[in-house]
Simulated scan of single mutants.
Amino acid sequence: MTRAREAVVKRFGEVGVAPGSAFADAVLLVVSELVVNVLRHAPRSPVADVGITVGAGQLVVSVADAEPRMPDLEPGATGAGLQLLAELASEYDGDVSVEPAVGHDGKVVLVRFRMPS
């Protein structure tokens, strides 16, 4: 988890996120929670691929794993971790989604944020 957070912090300058800001803290909390979810719920997945992209005024955190089971993102069906992520994303006019991985078994969880001005 620490390596994933450090890798994301290194990208903050490239993508226009002010280190130490409330927005940066929210993004890092999302990264931590998604990596913990892989460790907790995808034990067959040897790695989690963490990505961060920016475009069209949005920052997207993606975490892919090799567990094909998709989490239920319906309100009331998620665990506390995914509920927290949904709340954080909504504070920045964003959302949480999950989709099948492309090119291998597994899934990608995406958390989108509108970039603060």
Rank of each mutant, 00 (worst) to 15 (best):
T53N: 13
V17K: 00
A86Q: 15
V108Y: 11
A86H: 11
A48N: 08
G13Q: 12
D72I: 07
R69C: 00
V50N: 04
K10V: 02
V38T: 15
L85V: 15
F12A: 05
G106V: 09
L39M: 13
V50Q: 03
P71E: 03
V61W: 09
V17C: 01
G81P: 01
S97N: 14
R5K: 13
R5I: 15
F23G: 05
A24L: 04
A42C: 01
V30D: 15
P19G: 00
S62I: 00
D49R: 12
I52T: 05
R69M: 06
S21K: 03
A48F: 02
V63I: 01
D25P: 00
T78S: 15
G16L: 06
H41W: 08
M1I: 13
Q83C: 01
V60K: 07
R11E: 13
S62C: 03
A77E: 13
V17D: 00
P100G: 14
K10P: 02
G103E: 09
V60H: 04
R69K: 07
A89M: 10
S62F: 00
I52K: 04
Q83A: 14
V63N: 03
P75C: 03
V9K: 14
L28S: 12
G81Q: 03
A24W: 06
V109M: 12
R3L: 15
R5Q: 12
A64L: 00
G51D: 07
G94L: 06
P100K: 15
V61L: 08
R112P: 02
A42Y: 02
L39S: 14
Q83W: 08
K10F: 05
V98D: 06
A22C: 02
V15G: 04
G106T: 07
A66I: 01
M70E: 04
V111K: 10
V111T: 14
R69E: 06
H41Y: 13
V98I: 05
R114I: 01
A56Y: 09
V109I: 15
T53G: 13
V108C: 07
V60E: 09
L73S: 02
A64Q: 07
G51S: 13
L59M: 10
G103A: 08
A64N: 01
G13Y: 13
L34W: 07
V31G: 11
G55H: 11
V109T: 15
P68Y: 04
E74G: 14
N37A: 05
Q58C: 08
R40H: 11
K107F: 11
A22G: 11
R44N: 11
A22S: 13
L84D: 09
L110M: 12
Q83D: 14
T53Q: 12
G57A: 02
K107C: 09
Q58P: 00
E14V: 12
A89F: 07
G94C: 09
P75F: 00
E33K: 12
N37W: 03
P75W: 07
G16T: 07
Y92V: 02
V47S: 11
P68E: 01
V108M: 10
L82A: 07
V108D: 08
A26R: 02
A48Y: 05
G103S: 08
